[in-house]
């Protein structure tokens, strides 16, 4: 049962990611990315992170994808990739590099099984939203305040970028 609960979202996430990679139309890509985000949010629920499940859906699936769709439609840039890359070796290099990275990551984890113990206890709710909030507002208070500054800076930056210069 656990394997099934993990397997279905995992397969959906990989399918969404590959479809995003292969889709020629940027709007379709954004929607496949939405599928991927939703599948990953289900995995967060399996990993006992209900707070991040909600955050993932609201921020990624909600805000970020909508922003992407807005910009794609605003620019009318759905099909902006009809010509091949300027550098003809880029595609082959990308595949070789990606394959090497995947093999390397797999070897890293296979050769060091001790670093990742197998058993996962699914019973206790160590990461209830209240616990996350406690950690956020006590141990990590300073990063939390800095994050609010980051958001404020982004807000001001976007406003400045889109000012009309007369």
């Amino acid at each position: 049962m656990d394997v099934l609960l993990f397997g279905i979202p995992a397969v959906v996430a990989i399918i969404g990611a590959i479809a995003m990679l292969l889709s020629r139309n940027a709007v379709h890509s954004a929607l496949y990315l939405l599928l991927n985000f939703a599948a990953i949010s289900v995995l967060y629920l399996l990993l006992q992170a209900p707070f991040l499940f909600a955050t993932q859906l609201i921020v990624y699936a909600g805000a970020i994808i909508v922003l992407f769709l807005f910009v794609v439609m605003l620019l009318g840039a759905e099909r902006d990739e009809d010509t091949p890359h300027a550098n003809p070796w880029q595609n082959r290099g990308a595949f070789v590099g990606g394959l090497l990275l995947l093999v390397e990551l797999c070897l890293l984890y296979i050769n060091n099984p001790d670093t990742i113990p197998v058993a996962v206890d699914m019973d206790n709710a160590f990461a209830a939203p209240a616990e996350v909030a406690k950690a956020l507002f006590t141990t990590h208070l300073l990063p939390f305040e800095i994050a609010s500054f980051v958001l404020l800076t982004a807000l001001i930056g976007v406003v400045v970028l889109h000012q009309r210069r007369s």
Partner: peptide, 28 residues
């Protein structure tokens, strides 16, 4: 399900992301 499975899925998704960065031409 072991943590290894989640980490392996994460690695696969990361590699797909890298392929996207290098293969696609649109900045979006």
């Amino acid at each position: 399900v072991s943590t290894l499975m989640y980490v392996a899925l994460s690695a696969v998704l990361f590699v797909i992301g890298i392929l996207g960065v290098t293969l696609r031409k649109s900045a979006l």
